[in-house]
């Protein structure tokens, strides 16, 4: 079956940038969860999640993001969402989670570079 979720990470100052592309659903979300768990487990707790390439996300994906945010905060960091697409913004808005996450239009607004 074709890969429907692509993940990439890079460092930008204090922030670890996670580039997410494709679809985040019941099938693919565990991979994102594993990545976020590994990052926070290795002490990287300032995460900027780039969502500009995510065409679809369901409640499983929301759960992964909430878990990631909790782990970051427990370690004194945070998790920010960058440039979510309209379908993702709609899901965040309906569930009220747009009030929970810090959402930025541009990565530079998060990392300052």
């Amino acid at each position: 079956m074709a890969e429907s979720l692509l993940l990439d990470t890079r460092q930008s100052g204090d922030w670890t940038v996670v580039d997410v592309r494709g679809e985040v659903d019941l099938y693919t979300a565990p991979r994102l969860k594993t990545l976020l768990t590994d990052l926070t487990g290795s002490g990287r707790n300032r995460l900027a999640i780039e969502f500009g390439g995510v065409e679809f996300m369901d409640s499983t994906g929301l759960g992964v993001l909430i878990s990631g945010l909790k782990r970051c905060r427990e370690a004194g960091g945070t998790l920010a969402l960058v440039a979510p697409t309209e379908p993702v913004r709609k899901v965040l808005g309906i569930t009220g989670l747009d009030q929970v996450f810090t959402i930025h239009d541009d990565l530079a607004d998060v990392t300052g570079s």
């Binding site: 369901d58 409640s59 929301l62 759960g63 909430i66 878990s67 909790k70 899901v91 309906i94 569930t95």
Partner: peptide
């Protein structure tokens, strides 16, 4: 608790849409 929250949000999404 996150799983339980997501299960509730799942139905909420359908009924709101």
């Amino acid at each position: 608790s996150t799983d339980r929250l997501m299960a509730a949000l799942s139905l909420e999404l359908i009924t709101v849409l």
